[in-house]
Design a protein around this nucleic acid. Structure first.
Lengths: 281, 281
DNA sequence: CCACCCTCTCGTACACTGTACTGGAACTCG
DNA sequence: CGAGTTCCAGTACAGTGTACGAGAGGGTGG
């Protein structure tokens, strides 16, 4: 029943900050009994293992044709090109010119591959330096995330309730918290405000991606999509039921002149500033 | 065969707010050529058809064992119970005591079923009345959405870039816009602010659901999950790499005493108020 | 050098998904 | 009582993640 037989206790190697790049065996670890004797559910532990102590390739055995990084890169390429739904193990494997099952020597499963992909993408963020004025830093933080989501929309598609706990994701959080930790806010407020900013950026990015890819996803061209939608407006939309929408539409409220990000980020930071001023008082 | 090409121009009959409840044939529409001769891609049109002109059951033929509403209800029950991943046609059918393929006489496909489920759920919102002070109305609007997402987290899981264009979803938008349309803001600002509020609520709800269901999803109990996570903190977390996180943690910043919604909504509305004041000046 | 063992590779297989197709069952109308 | 119409469901197909186990290639101890 237990899908992953193999008896090996958790090793005690030092944490390296570089992600390992070689394949290694025994990715699937079953219920290992660590020193403290507390059994850990394999799912969570396995997800963290590859991320936080990347295995070094052991010289023995057959040479690997690729590296872990290659696999992650291939995954990102597939997802960037065709979205998350198209990210199947078979497609990633095909891009590397190997069989589907070969991936499983580099990665325990699809979930973990996705974690690694996200970590990789977050590694590319240009994070605000410590010591900068909080408003500059936080703007920078928000804008970098915004750009990340536009570049890799599949990160928003992951159906996960929160980002995975990976080194570079935590790096980003760390940098975000750092921008406002010395402004006099309480610890709870700091955490809460960063949540607010994250929620804001993700929400807007989602909407922006929707705008950009509407219709394109489902095979129909953008033109086709919009003609269908306009047919909706004439066939189904009832101005008497939605007078306010009609009114705002007539006044050009839905024209989306500037980027929604630029339009709103200042307003959001005003709110943060208010909070900071109150705390200082 | 074409169920939606509707040769009437924009109909004059009032849109009813009750969703139709009978099965009907010809749900799948092929490329129909409407009067204007512009071909419409079937996907988009089909998705809209069932939502906006609900078919009435025609008395002829075999009696249906269920109604469209039954199917939608069953879908919502499945999704509420086991999440969106568990929402398979076979499971929904089983709950109704019916073969999987029978669903397709009520609904063209899974996508459309999901649209209907979302519309149904949004129909249950208690929307702010017209004429109330904007801040009360907008708070009410936000809180209702917040509660909806907590009650039906699968709505956030839908992997759609935006909510489907359904009658009751538009009702909610209409009510939201209405709360701030007469505050002196420009049309663009009104649209933008409602986007902001929506993005905010969805983002926070996502985080809250994450908090509530962490680990539970993947089969392991919450206890097991947390013991694994605590093992993460001791095994992998490096305070030297994440000093700010460590500091905020030590000060109890991550304790989450009150609901994140209550903590942040006022701050967000402060930002809105600032915008309104500026516009009025 | 050779045998052995370790590791990577991958064909096959299973359970699961959405849904196209098709033949049959049940109901109303002429 | 047909005829027409509609609902029901069994089978089938392409796709998914991945368990299993047989083979291929390379480092190392004898």
């Amino acid at each position: 029943m237990s899908s992953t037989p193999n008896e090996r206790a958790s090793s005690v190697e030092p944490v390296e900050s570089t992600t390992g790049s070689g394949p290694v065996d025994g990715l699937r670890t079953t219920q290992a009994l660590p020193a403290d004797g507390i059994p850990r559910p394999p799912d969570v532990v396995r997800r963290l293992a590859l991320l936080w102590d990347p295995p070094r390739p052991s010289g023995r055995g057959r040479k690997a044709r690729h590296t872990l990084d290659d696999v992650v890169t291939a995954g990102i390429e597939v997802a960037d090109a065709d979205g998350l739904d198209a990210l199947s193990m078979r497609k990633v494997a095909a891009r590397l010119g190997v069989g589907a099952m070969s991936l499983y020597t580099y990665v325990p499963g699809r979930t973990e591959l996705l974690d690694l992909m996200i970590d990789r993408v977050f590694a590319g963020l240009d994070l605000p330096r410590a010591g900068a004025p909080w408003r500059d830093g936080l703007t920078h933080y928000a804008r970098e995330h915004w750009q990340l989501y536009l570049d890799h929309p599949w990160v928003l598609q992951t159906n996960m309730w929160r980002l995975p706990v990976t080194p570079h994701v935590l790096d980003a959080q760390e940098a975000g918290l750092r921008t406002i930790v010395d402004t006099g806010l309480s610890a709870a407020q700091v955490a809460e405000i960063l949540n607010l900013v994250d929620a804001f950026v993700r929400g807007l990015a989602r909407a922006a991606v929707a705008e950009a890819t509407d219709g394109t996803a489902s095979g129909s061209s953008t033109d086709e999509y919009w003609t269908s939608m306009s047919s909706f407006w004439v066939d189904h939309f009832d101005p008497e039921r939605y007078p306010t929408m009609q009114r705002i539409w007539d006044q050009g409220g839905f024209d989306a002149t500037t980027s929604p990000f630029d339009a709103s980020i200042d307003r959001l930071l005003d709110a943060v500033e208010t909070a900071i001023d109150r705390a200082a008082r």
